[in-house]
Design a binder for these strands. Structure first.
Lengths: 215, 215
DNA sequence: TAACTTATGTTAATATATTAACAAAGGAGA
DNA sequence: TCTCCTTTGTTAATATATTAACATAAGTTA
């Protein structure tokens, strides 16, 4: 490792893989894996070792020639790059099945994310609590966003309400949206939106299935 | 349009975008949009018009020079390419919040997919029904897969059970897995696995947020 | 010590993906 | 009819991503 050269514009695909590496490493039993090679890590994700090393190289590398990577160093380094080293707060809008599934998602803590609010319009849900987080009416979103310094808003509402929800979150000051509705939400250019368009994954699965069936 | 040249190895990214185009088109009000230009379609997804045309070109094109695309033709063509023209059956394993969210997912029908089974190990869930689909014990998976000719299995179980569930689905004859657990599931090479590793999306969101914050 | 093995970092070569440029085709209006 | 505008299909140019090749470093064994 010579020097950090983080400002050299990191490829988009490298960031996605970095997240996959971190996800993979975090699931490893730490007693067994104190160290890991690019070969081992690659095989767990279905990549080639040289891809792993090339990705790491964009950040100056995480190891030293001859040695294998120290898992702790990898995790720490990647968390820093991905902005997961400082704790961030998030809220979930829409407390249907999907919203509740996400509210119970244990990985948030591992990623340094704290769920600080649940919101819905349904009066029967408002007042409930999931894992000690109260369900509030969406009217309270602006206040909570400010008081809790929320940086990420999760859109788990029905499709019809998704755009309005996004507008509300943005006007409340949130710059990061995690969208689970199927629509393409319109936002100002300084807002980051991460879409989880589930049907896209399902359709590509269908395509690949068709391919192997007809070969 | 000269001729279909589908056998020319379609780029992976083109298939993903094809799914996004179809998703976008299916959400359009059909009275208003009988036709659409590459420019309009591209802007709705945040792409350039030339990208849309290049993607379509891999299949010989969907229109005619001078005319805009007919939305019906686009949808029909893409459904055929993605293997959504013939109806496929799927089952969901794991009827927690996520499983129930997916079971209520209305888009399945639009994609020609029919939910024919829900499975769980929890005796309190077995016997219930969601949208007229009974929840059965996972022991019944092999029988149902055969009798209903199931082609896609959805893994919505806790992480600990994900690999076992996958093994069971594969041994029952399923070749397509849609995995919502965070782990990288091991399967024979002739099985297609589509991972929805939600934390990856969340991490890339965190990264982008960090970028705009520090600029 | 020397030869061999395994490992990472780095650069070069290849492959893939995106964007630009332009010909061909239709519609609208003078 | 002629010109202008818009559109798709197609090819060429550019940009990005992946893979291969190799130098360097550490550990191991004869």
């Amino acid at each position: 490792m010579t020097e950090k050269k983080v400002n050299k514009k990191i490829p988009k695909m490298t960031i996605i893989r970095l997240a996959r590496y971190l996800n993979c490493l975090s699931l490893l039993p730490r007693e067994l894996y104190k160290e890991i090679s690019s070969k081992e890590l690659a095989s767990k994700i279905g990549l080639k070792p040289t891809q792993v090393r090339q990705d790491f190289h964009h950040f100056g590398g995480f190891g030293q020639a001859g040695y294998r990577y120290k898992v702790d160093d990898l995790i720490k380094g990647m968390e820093e790059i991905l902005g997961l080293d400082r704790s961030q707060n998030l809220i979930i809008v829409g407390v249907g099945h999907l919203g509740q599934a996400l509210a119970n998602y244990r990985k948030f803590e591992d990623l340094g994310l704290r769920l600080v609010g649940l919101f819905d319009t349904n009066p029967r849900l408002v007042g409930m609590a999931i894992r000690d987080v109260k369900v509030r009416d969406i009217d309270e979103i602006p206040d909570i966003v400010k008081s809790e310094n929320v940086s990420i808003g999760v859109i788990a509402t029905p499709t019809e309400s998704a755009q309005i929800t996004a507008d509300l979150l943005v006007s409340s000051g949130i710059r990061g949206l995690w969208n689970f509705s199927p629509i393409n939400i319109l936002t100002p250019p300084d807002v980051i939106i991460q879409n989880e368009h589930l049907s896209v994954g399902l359709m590509t699965l269908s395509y690949k299935l068709k391919q192997i069936m007809s070969s």
